[in-house]
Design a protein around this nucleic acid. Structure first.
Lengths: 342, 342
DNA sequence: CAATCGCTTGGTAGCGCTGTCAATATCAGT
DNA sequence: ACTGATATTGACAGCGCTACCAAGCGATTG
């Protein structure tokens, strides 16, 4: 004989319904769609729930309704402060809503991403936020067949799986180089780390700008697969100087590298921007307060995360955004480190 | 009449059991405690599960077993890169395990923390990781009655709720000041932002060290409730100089402030460390590669997160750590910015 | 050889909630 | 007053899994 597992003190929906004098199903509706109840019952259920301190059992709800209120988030790194800004936006947008976040780290591997994707989707998430536009063919196929809102973040490109929010890394890098060119710099080096797809597109933007003006020279490019750091910025800058001692500017694919390059300049007593101009990417907070202040390409990371989450929620609530692809743009913050040479 | 909701194609535990030629309950046991099965059945269930691509339904499992495999994590900030290191440690430790993370941001409010705590505990988490040792009395009471492993992280102190891992912020700050004193600095300023409980304890450590040597002077202390930033470091340092122009060193409660102070020194053409020594706190990556390199107090944030998660898992699996309170210590990284004056 | 023991396996029921549909109450229109 | 339409409410069963208990079975023991 199987046991009776009844937990005596626990407050279930049935208890709330009983106190409110309605059927359990009506009480259930109160929590999911209050408008469907008459004002009287609505008030009764509400006060009964409050009186008993009722908290719905999410597992039971998920099992019965065959869906969850969890939004899966796949990002490539927890270290990179770019993603912590995005995450903050996502968490802020979901704060106070019924939805929660399940986060996973792909470690910049699209195979790992595919594995995590399968894991997530098996639990029927309410929505999905995924980084970038470079997924495996299988990942794409899986996501296209699944029935939940999906937002690709960090960049925009052709053929979104569902929705998309970001900016063009190619254009952003190109604009940074255009700024340096406009300031009169000609031998502009490129420093890149990690070289994930978005960094690659920044390199493409750099190459395009340099080629357009006939200034392209492969000697000006230094890249590595190593993850970024300030220290690495100094090292790469030193490498660049060794390869191309005549550079007059350097574009760094992120601000950590730019800061590292700045420190390396100081160590070598090279004047910034007189001898070397420096431009970074992302416009982290410290760029505006360094000495000299560092130019950078501002990207709207917090807004990106926030809007991505909002897009998912709106879709879930039947108010799908009119425009599935949102380009948040960027702006080149021109500061002392790349000021016009005299 | 109610409907039959049977989903035809779906692979449930029953299908796996059927293919393996065992009862559903035996298949269930395979996933929870493989050792309980005979080798033959174990192999049969395993291959059946793989063949069908079975993925357990976590909601059903949670409902039936009355517990989840979710570890709740309460941290005060998503912006602060100190916490991103801790989080990375937690995620790494849980990677590949059956447990997942539910993260929430208390925004440095213990009332918010209490609210989130109630929310979490209502879902019966497998474990809990919570920041700091300053919880509301109600929070403490709730946590003491709940039956799951709890780890308080970031600092150590008396009367842990359950387990604890961190270090003494008081001792760490005191050691930093001791280092400056040993180097011959006497008028040592203090820069503090946010002033959460841990920062307060660093201030206490500073005060203690200064008082011990008869050098304490309230004019040397500049604090603010504003969240930290590099820019703020510059501003606070300027404030400090206005209050106490004769300072010869400054201890900053974190590295962002230290970097801001360094830039402010450069702007004012004050030589570091000749005129002003600078010591930060946390030893973020950039401290070792700035120019001059910046002294700091190294804290083991990644290890803290990792070990906290491991402590939770070990407890869940019946191997409770012998020592419930772990002091991870710290080390003063003595670099150029606080080198002995000539 | 019966009694006992430990290991493995299975049957039954139920975890707490919601989807489906039917039933009832309410209301406007003729 | 009656019909049909609409707004509310309720009954039922079942979502997929596991807790509990019992039974089967070979090995051990006196």
């Amino acid at each position: 004989m199987a046991r009776k597992r009844i937990t005596p003190g626990k407050i279930r929906l049935a208890e709330v319904a009983k106190l409110a004098g309605v059927s359990p199903i009506t009480a259930s509706r109160f929590f999911r769609n209050p408008e469907a109840l008459s004002a009287g019952k609505r008030a009764r259920v509400e006060s009964a729930a409050k009186e008993l301190g009722y908290v719905p059992n999410l597992a039971a709800r998920a099992l019965a309704s065959q869906r969850t209120e969890v939004i899966g988030v796949l990002i490539p790194s927890l270290t990179n402060n770019v993603f912590s800004d995005v995450l903050r936006g996502i968490y802020d947008a979901l704060d106070g809503s019924r939805y929660s976040i399940q986060l996973a780290n792909t470690r910049y591997s699209i195979l790992q991403e595919e594995r995590l994707l399968r894991l997530f989707l098996a639990q029927k998430p309410a929505g999905l936020i995924i980084t970038g536009i470079n997924q495996t063919a299988d990942s794409r196929r899986i996501m296209e067949t699944v029935d939940c809102p999906i937002v690709q973040i960090m960049e925009v490109g052709p053929s979104p799986i569902d929705m998309m929010i970001g900016f063009s890394h190619f254009d952003a890098a190109k604009a940074a180089i255009a700024h340096l060119l406009a300031q009169g710099y000609r031998r502009i080096g490129f420093l890149g780390a990690r070289m994930d797809p978005r960094v690659q597109r920044r390199l493409d933007g750099y190459r395009s700008a340099m080629t357009d003006t006939g200034l392209f020279d492969p000697q000006l490019i230094v890249t590595t697969a190593i993850p970024t750091s300030v220290t690495l910025g100094g090292t790469l800058f030193a490498d660049l100087l060794a390869k191309a001692p005549d550079i007059d500017a350097v574009f760094c694919v992120n601000d950590d590298l730019a800061l590292g390059a700045l420190f390396e300049c100081k160590r070598r007593h090279m004047a910034v921007p007189e001898q070397i101009a420096i431009v970074g990417f992302n416009d982290l907070e410290f760029m505006a307060s360094s000495e000299p202040t560092l130019s950078s390409v501002r990207t709207n990371r917090y807004e990106m995360g926030r809007n991505a989450a909002v897009m998912v929620i709106e879709t879930l609530e039947g108010r799908r955004p009119a425009e599935p692809v949102v380009d948040l743009g960027f702006s080149v913050m021109e500061r002392q480190s790349s000021a016009r040479r005299n």
